[in-house]
Nucleic acid binder design. Structure first.
Length: 920
RNA sequence: GCCCGGAUGGCGGAAUCGGCAGACGCGGCGGACUCAAAAUCCGUUGCCCGCAAGGGCGUGUGGGUUCAAGUCCCACUCCGGGCACCA
């Protein structure tokens, strides 16, 4: 019977479902393992990236279960979001209908993966039974003062007709469509995530990748420094102050002017009558420009004087106050003290507008240049000068109080009540409201008197009306009934028509999986007490500063609002300590890389040289994508390179070009001298996208090769955390492997003449594979786990050919191979497992344990080096003594030849692996 | 500019502690089977010299430590990612 993946996979999937083997039920007698993989957005089709993310997660969940853990591995859909509304506008289909149709389709595709998802725990964020609790969390946040309504400069996307969070804007463009985003002053809903900035910076209790830690730290952007108050000159003692944040209070004596953001609230007060027109014009221009346009002329400083002055608190100097768009209203206090002598931007501004430059730091090894003569700012270390009480103090490269000059400056400010030590963050509060329909409604009622109140819990959820029309604007605003509502006291109220950022839905979904039907709370404390927290979370690194930061914030806020109290109580009842379990959502995080489109086969090369028979002998080869067809003797795509032979496609024929060593090779993208080795027949690998036509469809692959082969290939062909270009040719190797497993599993082994060492060898390889595969799966190293199993396959093929191992050794090895491969290729292994007479699924079988005595070799190949170079090898007993190892090494004929006429200086002996004889 | 990660055959990649570089797979080459092709099987495959035995070179570049370096240290180049007029 030959291997038929279609029958095997559908049969096994049906059997798993019938037997209900993936149902995860609380069992306090077993250790638990909560494995979570990021839930998909129901975009319509599962793509190869979903498979790449999910099948290894599934394999590891299966492995943990075989290791004896009670494993929860749930799945759901992050179902609110803009694409559904776009579909509504473009195709005139209701977002709910579109979303649910996609979910149905994707559920089927997810089943074809053969993953062990527990579908009874499925959660879908657009279901009222789900978003009731999303709303409830919002109401809780509102009542605890974490959610608030505030006016701020926010990101407005004209394309999407909604505001966006800072995290969703990259380089002034929205991260989904790449369209420009405007800055607008608007009243919106925010979550006070900045209160948690310091706690979010501490990732010491969780096992997360370094890159994610650094991205989160960068995003939070903590800076240490001081806040300094500058009196507004001529306004009297209580006429107001301009507060600035600076990381360099030590340079205060060099502050010769101030700059406010154009939107700063004090600008009106400071502006003199003479400057009024210029200031108004500048502010209007700044408001018109997008973030993008501001960034374009970064080096070209603009600004205008307000005509007003402030007093530098350290020396009572009257300094002019300017406005300029290089100061951002959203960072720090929206105002800076400018120290042109020691800040590049301030220097450029001062030179442009003829403002004073006063150096206050003398470099240690160079003469101090007078301010007027400086050609650039000095940002290095040195000694304080022109700074009154700070003169003579050392300035080093350290930040904050670790720098003696900064410490002295802060002390001076505190003593003179002119400022204080301060920490500033780049992180802004999370803008949560969206002017869109397809999201969870914000459960707030605006009272007639302007007050705000949360919709009471018993009235939740605020359900999205279904009878809506889509005409660009959110239909909630224009809906006849939705917005009109009574407030708590029966007064006239207006319902909030904004919905929540969909990241809100995904900030708590792993709690809903615990008890998706639970009606009295967001999750059942009894389930939570057993399963929480998530032990392993897998998914893409693109969520580093969005989902993963929000999720951490959410759990900390839930903890502070007391929403884990019932769970902690339930834990105590079962004798489980809650210590440290509710500060972070995900104890371990691992990211997969991204699968890119298949390599583009050719580069355009220009070859000149001589015809030599039916090939060209090249004198020069140049890579030039834009070369015209007549640029050289042979011009075309480089299709293949083998050693120094190139296959170049010219029109519809292929020309062979030989590149001798003395040919000139030019690859403009690689500087310096190039040779033939640097010619690549692929310089262009891109993300998969429909428009590029390089999308790999997993459904077609599954149909052609089977899910087991696709899973195995995805785990084998890449370094998982890295990803890389798809290679459609490579999958046959995985298919051959699965077919070999099938043949070995169905082979009726009859030993010929049994060779005892061969049996022992097979057993040793088997037990080593047990050790190796377990070790690799533990560490998320799928490729080497598969490689180890392929090696065992090779050993078994060899044993079958020789027929020289005992039946027991054969059976042990085949059974082990099926168990070890089961997490990776669940269908074929379970089919074979049952064919081999087992009653229960291989997935319920315990993970094989290796015998440590069996994996040690009796003999080892010892390497003998002379002066660090391998000169001979010899098989020696594994327990050889140091003396015997040296004697054996010296006795080797080839070693003696190398020692002849030389004096042995030292001999390094590392039995049983190596002897290195050092001679002179 | 600052921060994080990386660079190993034609390709994807492997190499617990510093101890045989290139596991495993793809691709290539040669052969068997076949009328032929596909599939399959056998052999081979880092580069260079050599008929061979064998030798030399080799993990981005340049130094260093060591009996021994892909692995440790210093300096640099390039690639990927994050942050950035961030005060």
């Amino acid at each position: 019977m030959s291997y038929d993946h279609r029958t095997i996979e559908s049969t096994q999937q049906q059997r798993w479902q019938d037997e209900g083997i993936y149902r995860a039920v609380v069992d306090w007698n077993k250790p638990k393992h909560y494995a979570l993989t990021m839930l998909p957005y129901p975009s319509g089709d599962l793509h190869i990236g979903h498979w790449y993310a999910m099948t290894p997660s599934d394999a590891r969940a299966r492995y943990m279960r075989m290791k004896g853990f009670n494993v929860l591995f749930p799945m759901g859909f992050d179902a609110f979001g803009l694409p559904a509304e776009n579909a509504a506008v473009q195709r005139n289909v209701h977002p709910a209908k579109w979303t649910w149709a996609n979910i149905d389709r994707m559920r089927g595709q997810l089943r074809s993966m053969g993953a062990m998802f527990d579908w009874e725990r499925e959660a879908v964020s657009c279901e009222p039974s789900y978003y009731k609790w999303t709303e409830w969390f919002f109401a809780q946040m509102f009542e605890h003062g974490i959610a608030y309504r505030g006016e701020a400069m926010v990101n407005w996307s004209p394309t999407l007709q909604t505001v966006l969070a800072n995290e969703q804007v990259i380089d002034g463009k929205d991260e989904r469509t790449g369209q420009p985003v405007l800055q607008k002053l608007m009243e919106q809903w925010f979550f006070g995530i900045t209160k948690y900035a310091d706690e979010l910076l501490d990732l010491s209790s969780i096992d997360w990748p370094e890159s994610i830690r650094s991205m989160q730290a960068n995003w939070i952007g903590r800076s240490e420094g001081a806040r300094v108050d500058f009196e507004i000159a001529g306004a009297g003692s209580d006429g107001g102050t301009i507060t600035v944040f600076t990381t360099r209070p030590d340079t205060l004596w060099g502050a010769t002017f101030m700059v406010l953001a154009p939107e700063h609230p004090l600008v009106d007060q400071l502006t003199t009558d003479e400057q009024r027109d210029a200031v108004d014009a500048y502010r209007a221009e700044a408001a018109r420009r997008t973030e993008l346009e501001r960034l374009e002329n970064e080096n070209d400083k603009t600004g205008v004087s307000t005509g007003g002055f402030a007093v530098n608190p350290v020396n009572r100097a009257r300094i002019p106050v300017w406005i300029a768009d290089y100061v951002l209203v959203s960072y720090g206090t929206g105002a800076i003290m400018a120290v042109p002598a020691h800040d590049e931007r301030d220097f450029a501004f001062a030179r442009r507008f003829g403002l004073d430059v006063v150096p206050v730091i003398a470099p240690a090894d160079a003469d101090t240049v007078a301010g007027a003569a400086m050609t650039e700012s000095y940002v290095g270390p040195g000694t304080m000068i022109n700074s009154g009480p700070l003169d003579g103090i050392t300035v080093n490269e350290a930040k904050g109080r670790a720098n003696p000059a900064i410490a002295a400056a802060i002390d001076w400010l505190v003593e003179h009540q002119a400022g204080e030590e301060s920490v500033n963050y780049r992180l802004r509060d999370w803008l949560i409201s969206r002017q869109r329909y397809w999201g969870s409604p914000i459960p707030i009622i605006h009272r007639a008197d302007g007050g705000l109140e949360a919709v009471p819990t018993e009235q939740l959820p605020v359900v999205l009306p279904e009878d809506v029309e889509f005409e660009g604007r959110s239909p909630l605003v224009t809906h006849p009934d939705f917005a009109s509502v009574a407030d708590m006291h029966g007064g006239i109220g207006r319902r909030e028509t904004d919905t929540m950022d969909t990241f809100m839905c995904s900030s708590w979904y792993w709690f809903r999986y615990l008890s998706p039907q639970f009606e009295t709370a967001a999750f059942d404390p009894e389930e939570a007490a057993y399963w929480l927290p998530v032990d392993v979370y897998t998914g893409g690194a693109e969520h580093a500063v969005m989902h993963l930061l929000y999720a951490r914030f959410f759990v900390k806020a839930m903890r502070d609002m007391g929403h884990f109290d019932d769970t902690i109580e339930a834990m105590a009842a079962h004798g489980r300590s809650a210590e440290g379990l509710f500060d972070e959502p995900f104890m371990m995080l691992r990211n997969q890389g991204q699968i890119l489109g298949e390599e583009r086969r050719g580069d355009r090369v220009v070859v000149d040289g001589n015809a030599d028979g039916n090939r060209i002998l090249a004198a020069s080869v140049r890579v030039d994508p834009d070369a015209p067809d007549d640029a050289g003797m042979v011009v075309g795509e480089l299709m293949r390179r083998t050693e120094n032979l190139l296959q170049v496609r010219v029109g519809d024929r292929t020309v062979t070009v030989e590149v001798p060593d003395d040919a000139v090779v030019e690859v403009p993208s690689i500087p310096g001298a190039n040779d033939v080795n640097q010619l690549k027949h692929h310089l262009d690998v891109e993300r998969m996208s429909k428009s590029r036509g390089n999308v790999v469809n997993p459904d077609l692959l599954v149909d052609q090769y089977g899910a087991d082969t696709v899973r195995t290939y995805l785990m084998f062909a890449f370094e998982w955390q890295k990803g890389g270009p798809w290679d459609s040719r490579g999958i046959v190797g995985s298919r051959r492997f699965i077919e070999d497993v099938w043949r070995l599993g169905t082979h009726e082994y009859q030993p010929g003449s049994i060779d005892e060492p061969a049996s022992i060898h097979l057993r040793r390889q088997t037990h080593r594979t047990m050790q190796k595969v377990g070790h690799e799966l533990e560490a998320f190293k799928w490729n080497t786990a598969v490689a180890a199993l392929m090696s065992l396959r090779n050993d078994l093929l060899d044993a079958r050919k020789q027929s020289n191992v005992s039946s027991e050794a054969w059976a042990e090895s085949v059974d082990a191979m099926l168990c070890l491969l089961a997490p990776i290729a669940p269908h074929v292994t379970d089919d074979l497992w049952r064919q081999r007479g087992n009653q229960q699924s291989v997935h319920l079988h315990p993970w094989p344990t290796f015998d440590p005595a069996l994996i040690v070799d009796e003999t080892v190949t010892m390497v003998v080096q002379v002066n660090g170079k391998v000169r001979d090898r010899v098989d020696v007993p594994a327990d050889i003594t140091e003396a015997d190892a040296e004697a054996t090494a010296r006795s080797l004929e080839r070693i003696q030849e190398w020692l002849e006429g030389k004096t042995v200086k030292t001999v390094v002996v590392r039995p049983p692996k190596l002897v290195n004889i050092v001679v002179t």
